[in-house]
Amino acid sequence: MRTARKFPAALAAAGLALTTLTACGGGTSGAGAADDANGKIKIMVGGLDKVIYLPARLTQQLGYFEDEGVHVTLLTEPAGVQATTSLVSGDVQGVVGFYDHTLDLQVKGKQVESVVQLAHAPGEVEVVSNKAAGQLTSPKDFKGKKLGVTGLGSSTDFLTKYLAVKNGVQTHEFTPVAVGAGQTFLSALQQGSIQGGMTTDPTVAQILDKNLGKVLLDMRTPEGSQKALGGPYPSSSLYMNTDWVNSHKETVHKLANALVKTLKWMSTHTPEQIAAKMPADYAQGGKKLYAQAIKDTLPMFTEDGVMPADGPATVERVLKAFNPNLKNATVDLKKTYTTEFVKKAG
């Protein structure tokens, strides 16, 4: 890749999947403008090896960021809530994470917007351990259970609470446990420290392959989202501080071009072809299992990066069902996303 010659630091950051917020620096509000002036952008991903965020790394692997003249460093945090913190503190210019954080941040006085909507379904799966399968057959059985989420305040936490409340279980009647994803989630399920939980591929594929549990609720498709949440649930997105977007439109347009080009590429290639472009260490359960994980998750992605028309309203309804910060708050949904850049992408 050209990045290897010209931008070794960026490639190292992405290739090694830096995992600590401290690696980004101390968080100065002026960092974004300075980095952009040098043609370098830092994007924090809420789990770089998760299939739900695959377009971010795939765009880099395909060379589309460089084709647009933007030199992107991809960093990673295990949960979206931590990625959001790095954006608000000014350590990074963008986050690839769930759109629902833009609503949560708005009521806290932070104006953040989705500029590329990568997905129109959550891509999340509620699983249950084999041992607990008899007592945990639907969200109605969440009461008294310990349920895994990537992080407290994360989108998996949000969705778990919504499913509970929707099915008559109050949020204080079960215990969300922050177990991350991948091996930490698998271990928690295997050891019985959680009875079930919400996670994504490739973790889901590994749970089924190792026979550690079974699927309770599948939201990897628009149909699954409709059944569980009552509508499309825009999830994975590139979101950024609105002020930064408005003052760096040319850069945002280039980022949107690259990501939309990737979404279109994904729609015309097989899961095996997509898997072959990704780093080898992402396929921890083997190439075949990783390709299957991609296949199962592909329906969640958009092909054009455009926000689904009724998606924001679904997210608002879901969050207001359990989140006291949003329950009586007025959210200006039009300020939580923009289609300005993806509509011009090409």
Results as ranks from 00 to 15, higher is better:
Ala9Ile: 02
Ala13Thr: 06
Ala14Lys: 09
Gly15Ser: 02
Thr19Gln: 15
Thr19Ser: 12
Thr20Val: 00
Thr20Phe: 04
Gly27Val: 05
Thr28Arg: 07
Ser29Glu: 13
Gly30Pro: 00
Gly32Gln: 06
Gly32Thr: 06
Ala34Ser: 15
Asp35Glu: 15
Asp35Tyr: 10
Asn38Cys: 05
Lys42Leu: 04
Ile43Cys: 07
Val45Lys: 09
Val45Cys: 14
Gly46Tyr: 06
Gly47Arg: 02
Asp49Asn: 10
Thr59Gly: 12
Gln60Met: 14
Gln60Lys: 14
Gln61Glu: 14
Phe65Asp: 07
Thr76Phe: 09
Glu77Asp: 03
Leu87Thr: 10
Val92Ile: 08
Phe98Gln: 02
Thr102Gly: 10
Asp104Pro: 00
Asp104Phe: 12
Leu105Thr: 10
Gln106Val: 08
Gln106Trp: 08
Ser114Tyr: 12
Val116Arg: 06
Leu118Thr: 11
Ala121Arg: 05
Glu124Asn: 11
Val125Met: 01
Val125Lys: 00
Glu126Gln: 02
Val127Ala: 00
Lys131Trp: 00
Thr137Met: 02
Phe142His: 13
Lys143Gly: 14
Gly144Cys: 06
Gly144Ile: 06
Leu147Lys: 05
Leu152Ile: 15
Ser154Asn: 12
Ser155Asp: 15
Ser155Lys: 09
Asp157Met: 14
Tyr162Ile: 01
Tyr162Lys: 03
Val165Met: 07
Val165Gly: 03
Lys166Gln: 10
Val169Gln: 01
Gln170Gly: 11
Gln170Glu: 12
Gln170Asn: 14
His172Phe: 09
Phe174Cys: 03
Thr175Asp: 05
Thr175Gly: 04
Gly180Leu: 04
Ala188Phe: 07
Gln191Phe: 05
Thr200His: 13
Thr200Tyr: 12
Pro202Ser: 07
Ile207Phe: 07
Leu208Arg: 00
Leu216Phe: 08
Met219Asn: 10
Arg220Ser: 10
Thr221Asn: 09
Gly224Phe: 02
Ser225Gly: 14
Ala228Tyr: 01
Pro234Asp: 06
Ser237Ala: 15
Leu238Thr: 04
Trp244Asn: 09
Ser247Trp: 05
Glu250Ile: 08
Thr251Asp: 03
Lys254Val: 09
Lys254Met: 06
Asn257Gly: 01
Ala258Phe: 05
Lys261Phe: 01
Leu263Trp: 01
Lys264Met: 13
Lys264Ile: 07
Lys264Cys: 04
Trp265Phe: 04
Trp265Pro: 04
Trp265Ala: 10
Met266Lys: 02
Ser267Ile: 05
Lys277Glu: 09
Met278Asn: 09
Met278Thr: 06
Asp281Ile: 00
Tyr282Lys: 10
Gly285Pro: 12
Gly285Arg: 07
Gly285His: 05
Gly285Asn: 06
Lys287Glu: 05
Tyr290Cys: 08
Tyr290Phe: 15
Tyr290Gly: 01
Gln292Ser: 10
Ala293His: 13
Leu298Tyr: 05
Met300Glu: 13
Phe301Leu: 10
Asp304Trp: 15
Asp304Asn: 14
Met307Ser: 03
Asp310Tyr: 04
Asp310Trp: 04
Asp310Leu: 11
Gly311Gln: 03
Ala313Thr: 14
Val315Pro: 09
Glu316Trp: 09
Pro324Asp: 01
Asn325Pro: 00
Thr330His: 12
Thr330Gly: 01
Phe341Tyr: 15
Lys344Ile: 01
Lys344Ser: 08
Gly346Cys: 07
Gly346Ile: 02
